[in-house]
Simulated assay, not measured.
Amino acid sequence: MNMSFLPEKIGAAFASVNPRLSKVFLPWVVKNPRYLRGAPKLLKAFNEAEEIRASLMTEEDVMIPPIMILSITNRCNLSCDGCFAHTLGNSGKSATGRSVMTVQDWQSVIDQGRGLGVYTFLIAGGEPFMLPGLIDICLNNRDRIFVIFTNGTAIGETELQKLKKTTNTVVVVSVEGGRELTDDRRGEGVFESAVDTMERLHRNGIVGGISVTITRKNHHFWMEDENLDYFIDRGAKLAFFTEYIPTDEGGSTSVSRSPMGDLNITSGEESYTVLKSEERKSFREKILYYKANKSLFIIHSPGDEELFGGCVSSGKGFIHVNPYGDLTPCPVSDIATHNMKKVSLKEGLSSPLFVEIRKSEDMLENGDGPCALFSHQKELEELRRKVGAYKTGL
């Protein structure tokens, strides 16, 4: 195959989606030729997926998101403070006794998503690398992008060798900041393991990144250039900065609004509280500076959602499937009307629950908070009762 034209074509394709993609990823692709071999299939599939989704919207009025988030296992080897998956009963010791999705079940969901025009699958958990056969799923679907979110402690040599065969897989390692911040929330020694994993991925030509939960405790760390540069130097090509959403373990979290409309969140989790208005504003300004000046593709939630008119959950931009097959609006929500073991993905995406959420502009407004649906718990509960949705957790 003559691949001399591919870097230019790939650069143009990246730029058509987001100009920053070309600047960040094209040099990596050129230095790692195996990605050039997989690029034509990915580019063709991307265009086909766009056409399928547009056709379904025009002809059948069915909104298909380009992204699916799959919480692919409820198993996890860590017990991080404030973990929403744990609180929702989707991970760790709080996981329910319900039967989990098998690898075959997940492949069925992915096959259905492919047929509907879903192009990118974000793989979460639990800890995804505790699911046997995870990387085989990526290898068996080479015309789709997989982004795996991991705590960085469970990738052995066997997994690393398999990842070296992929050309469609990104591995994102979760950290809180430096050693003290990360180990304080995730456990002693986790920071060292996470950084070691990032460096091994980089040495072996596997695209890597970082995922950070932004709280009042660590946001100053990430506003220092040299701290972000530390992770860029260790191979990070993309970063997900997600502002902390309080969990409601023990009923310790309450949400209200001041007479001026500001969001007030009271939580028993003193160490991991949401940013205040001025902190959120200054952090957003720093993120925009990083986007313009760093060789890193950055996704910031909820800040970037402003470009789409608010929250993009419930099929507007993405949808979520938990370890038991429940189709929920997003990973931090615990309501559903459909389960992927019983119905088709297309039927689930057309549910009144998602349609009503997408129609409610107020419910999708983040306002002064980290998450639109979290900020509108009363309205969401009213809608849950109206459409007969069930609680997915404990």
Rank of each mutant, 00 (worst) to 15 (best):
S4E: 15
L6P: 00
E8W: 03
A12H: 11
F14T: 07
V17Q: 07
N18E: 11
R20C: 01
V24E: 08
L26I: 03
P27H: 09
W28S: 02
V30H: 01
K31R: 15
G38K: 06
E50I: 11
I52M: 07
T58Y: 04
E59N: 14
I64M: 05
I67Y: 04
M68W: 00
I69M: 08
L70R: 01
L70N: 01
S71I: 00
I72P: 03
N74H: 09
R75C: 02
H86Q: 08
H86M: 06
H86E: 13
S91Q: 12
G97H: 12
G97L: 07
R98M: 14
R98F: 13
L116Y: 10
A124F: 10
G126N: 07
E127W: 09
M130Y: 01
M130I: 14
L134R: 03
C138D: 10
C138F: 08
C138A: 15
L139H: 06
N141P: 04
D143S: 11
D143M: 05
V147H: 05
V147Q: 12
T150M: 06
T150H: 07
G152S: 04
G152R: 01
T158P: 00
K164Y: 01
K165Y: 00
T166H: 09
T167C: 03
S174L: 09
E176S: 12
G178M: 09
G178E: 12
T182R: 07
D183M: 06
D184Y: 14
R185L: 12
R185N: 10
R185K: 15
E192K: 11
S193H: 14
A194E: 09
A194Q: 06
M198I: 05
E199I: 15
R200V: 05
L201Q: 10
R203H: 13
I206Q: 04
I210N: 03
V212M: 09
K217D: 13
N218M: 11
H219R: 06
F221W: 15
N227E: 12
D229G: 00
Y230F: 15
F231H: 02
R234P: 01
K237V: 01
A239T: 04
T242S: 13
I245K: 03
P246D: 11
T247N: 13
G251I: 13
G251K: 12
S252G: 02
G261I: 10
T266S: 10
T273A: 05
S277A: 10
R280D: 05
K281L: 13
R284D: 14
Y289W: 15
N293V: 00
I298S: 02
P302Y: 01
D304W: 08
D304H: 06
E305H: 08
F308A: 10
G309Y: 08
S313D: 10
F318T: 03
H320N: 14
N322R: 05
Y324M: 02
G325M: 08
G325S: 07
D326H: 11
I335V: 15
T337K: 13
M340E: 10
S344H: 04
L345W: 07
K346P: 01
E347A: 12
S350N: 14
L353K: 05
F354Y: 13
V355N: 10
I357E: 06
I357N: 03
K359M: 06
E365M: 11
D368L: 03
C371F: 09
E379F: 01
E379D: 14
E379N: 12
L380D: 04
R385G: 13
G388W: 10
Y390V: 09
T392Y: 05
